[in-house]
Amino acid sequence: MKNPLDTMPDAVRQALVTIQEGFESTGYLCSDAIATSVFLATRLDKPVLIEGPPGVGKTELARATATWLGKPLIRLQCYEGLDESKALYEWKYGKQLLYTQVLKDKLGDLMVGAQGLRESIARLHEFDDTFFNPEFLEPRPLLKALWEPGGAVLLIDEIDKADQEFEAFLLEMLQDYQISIPEIGTVKAHVPPICFLTSNNTRELGDALKRRCLHLHIPYPDTALECRIIERRVPELNASLRRQLVAFVQSLRGLDLKKSPAISETIDWARTLVLMHAEMLDHELVRATLNVLLKFQDDIALVDTELFTLIHAAEKSA
C-alpha cells in the first residue's frame, strides 16, 4: 500500500531546493531552516517573525525573497513613536481643503431652486461623499503592500523598536491581511503580501503577535555555510585564507564578547584582507584590522591578549 504522505516530503524537499537555488541566484545563501520558513510562509499565508543577532541577514532574507519572486519590496522601518499615519495611511489634507473650496463655489449652482434649509440639505445628501474617498488617501507602506495588485513582499523591520500599541495595531493586518480605515471601511488585500517581521530582541514581543507568526531564529551560520557565503560575496579571496578567516571568526563567537562579529562583519573583514593583499592570517595584520571585526574597545583588548592562540587554532583547523 503506497501512502500518499510518503511522496509528499519529496515534493517539499524539491520545493525547498527550488527556494534555495532561487535565493542563491540573487546572492543569498540560506540554510534549510530558512528555506522551510519561506516555504511555509507562502503555503500557509502566514507572516514570518525573524529573530537573531544583528547582522545575520534578517533584512537580507526579505530582500532576497522579493528579488526572487519578482515582487516589489515594501519596507517599513519601525521606531519609537511610529503611528498609523506614518505606517498605514494619511489623508491628503491639502487636496481635501481644495475640494471643499471647490464645493463651496459650486454650491450655489447645486442649490438653485431649493426651497428652505431642509430641501437644500436633502439635495446635498444626493451627492456622493467624496470627501473621504480613497483618492484622497496617501498610502503608507502597509496600505501600499495591500494595494499592490500582484502582491508584494512586506518587510516590517525591527518591530521591537516600535511601541506596544503599534504591535497591537498590526495584528489585524497580519492575521487577515486587511486594515480598517474608520472613514471608509476595511481594505483587504487581493493577493496577500508575504510579510517578514524582524526583531533584534531589545524587548520581548507580545504573545498575540508571536502567535500569528511563524517564528524563525537565524543563528550565526556554521563554518561550511559561512565559507560559501564568503566565497560568493568576496570571490577574490583565496581558498585557504578564506577557511582560516572563517575559522578565526567562528572561534571569536565562542568568546565572551560584548558584540560577536556577524556575517556582515566577516564579509567586511574579508574585503579588507583582499585590499591589503593578505596571503595568510598573520599576527600583525590581524591586530591592525581587528577593528573591522570588533566594534568595542573592550572586545578588541580581550581578543588581543589571546590573538596568538586564536590565529594558531584557526590555521590548524583550516
Binding site: T36, L40, C213
Partner: peptide, 20 residues
C-alpha cells in the same frame, strides 16, 4: 503540507510554528 516521512523537515517546520 509536509507529512510525516521526513523527520528533520517536520522538526524544523513544526518548530517554527510552535516554539517562539
Amino acid at each position: 503540507n509536509i507529512g510525516l516521512a521526513d523527520r528533520e523537515l517536520l522538526k524544523m517546520a513544526l518548530g517554527q510554528t510552535l516554539a517562539k
